[in-house]
Write a protein that binds this DNA or RNA. Structure first.
Length: 257
DNA sequence: ATGGTCGCGCAGCGA
């Protein structure tokens, strides 16, 4: 099974690149973030034409997540399992694909440490942990994939002291991410790669991509049964190049299952 | 040292 995740920063603008990428990357499951599309406007036919079923969860303009799968797409759940169904703000979608409980997540940015947006980010991550704990079993195959807007450690940032006014690298955010680890999920990329400067996002401005100034904030957090079957992990930097790229690269994960 | 680019949508905000 090949699992992928990609923050596309507007699926409307990015659809031609996503179609091209599906053609050569050939994922079985693709989690999308920042589609910026209402469900009614989602290009379902384009995915069906390539052999994928698709589910989306978005209100348009901001946020929006989706899951495309060519190995089945069942038990779709939009948002958090408990509480107000709009609390997730179009940032969480879950489905069962080929026996794996997959979630596509777009964690709030947080803007600046200590702001109300930052507190909301921490609360969102706590809700995500509660959602996973309420709906999944760590002894079963679970994959929570997407843009976490948290760099797990200092290897994952070009310069931790200059990152985003302290967000993405703060102890509070990393602790919130560690809560998912404590529940039973592991950062799949780190099972295959231990090096630094292996980023998944680069600011559009000032040529940051070419200066290797980025962060690794797009993650696949997987339960032990999947972690044990991981054979390959890649950040596809090629897809960050060329015409009209997203500011995020897609990630690929192969599992022997 | 500062600002720099996108997307949305039509001004300026969010990232």
């Amino acid at each position: 099974m090949r699992l992928a995740t990609w923050n596309v920063n507007s699926l409307k603008v990015r659809l031609p690149r996503v179609e091209e990428w599906l053609g050569y990357a050939q994922p079985d499951v693709l989690c999308l973030q920042e589609t910026k599309l209402a469900d009614a406007a989602f290009p379902t036919m384009a995915f069906q034409a390539l052999g994928y079923e698709v589910a989306s969860h978005g209100a348009g303009r901001w946020n929006g997540v989706a899951i495309a799968s060519r190995i089945g797409l069942g038990d779709v759940e939009a948002g958090f399992h408990e509480g107000d169904p709009t609390l997730d703000e179009g940032r969480l979608l879950s489905a069962t694909c080929g026996g794996v409980r997959v979630s596509s997540v777009y964690v709030p940015n947080g803007r600046s440490v200590g702001s109300e947006h930052f507190e909301a980010k921490l609360e969102w991550l706590r809700s995500l942990r509660a959602h996973v704990a309420a709906t999944c079993d760590p002894a079963e195959p679970v994959a929570v994939c997407g843009d976490f807007n948290v760099a797990p450690d200092d290897r994952d940032v070009w310069d931790a002291s200059r990152a985003h006014g302290g967000t993405h690298v703060s102890e509070a955010e990393r602790s919130a991410l560690a809560e998912l680890v404590e529940w039973g999920l592991v950062d799949a990329f780190r099972l295959q790669h231990s090096g630094d400067r292996l980023f998944s996002w680069w600011d559009y401005r000032a040529g940051d991509f070419h200066k290797h100034k980025g962060m690794r904030i797009d993650l696949a957090m997987v339960s032990r049964p999947l972690a044990e079957r991981l054979t390959f992990a890649l950040i596809d930097r090629q897809a960050r190049k060329g015409k009209l790229p997203s500011d995020h690269a897609p990630l690929l994960f192969d599992f022997d299952c």
